[in-house]
Amino acid sequence: MLKHRNFDDNTHLFGRIWGIVTSVCIIAYPFLCMLIFDAGLNWDLVLTGIGVIAMYWVVSVVETFTYAPMLGASGTYLGFVTGNLSNLKVPCALNCMEQAGVKSGTEEGEVISSISIAVSSIVTMLIIVLGVCIIAVLTPLLESEALKPAFDQILPALFGAMAVVYISKNWKIAILPCALMLVVFIVGSFVGGEGLAQTLIGVMVPVGVVVTIAYTRIIYKKGWLGEQGYLKAETAETSENTK
């Protein structure tokens, strides 16, 4: 007898099927190039690249465990195929959930997260297709020295706007991890030079997450989060309903 599958089961089934199909397509590219150009791998170069590959395997494992709980099932299956997670898909999903007034981890949160990642992926692909079609016209503009600082600073600009929302709403939770990360990166810049931050960020996202979860658990158990943003809202809502 066929097992009855609910919506969640189907999400995982479809997510896996699409994931396998798209992954096979993506993996096929270098091999198709080998056939078309009658070329082979340069094993010396592969050996040179092994360090980079290993580093990104570790980053990928860490990203999966960090971002998957935030994005929900559909968002995870789609987000990891379409890439650009920390600089686009995750902030986009968080912003849309925040604006829609839904919480991550709920069914509504899953719907909003999934829609936002799908739309973000489609819009990104459309903009890039358009850009590729007129790349000759765009190249002087996009590579201009005048505009370069703006494109170099997209992460600070993105997280500055997000931080003010999340920190103001959850300052009791934010205070320790923010202080810790400031110390780590400032000390790191003096000890390891300016390039260290690029390497550190991949490691410090999960470290920040683990520290924040542990610290939040402690202050939650101690009852210090009674006045925290959403709890205040929840209390207000309950009293509204009671009236």
């Binding site: 935030m70 920390s86 931080a163 400031l182 400032i186 960020i201 996202v205 999960p206 924040t212």
Partner: peptide
């Protein structure tokens, strides 16, 4: 918050 704090430090 863990993710945002890491990017705050990154800046």
């Amino acid at each position: 918050m863990g993710m945002i704090s890491a990017f705050l430090g990154f800046v």
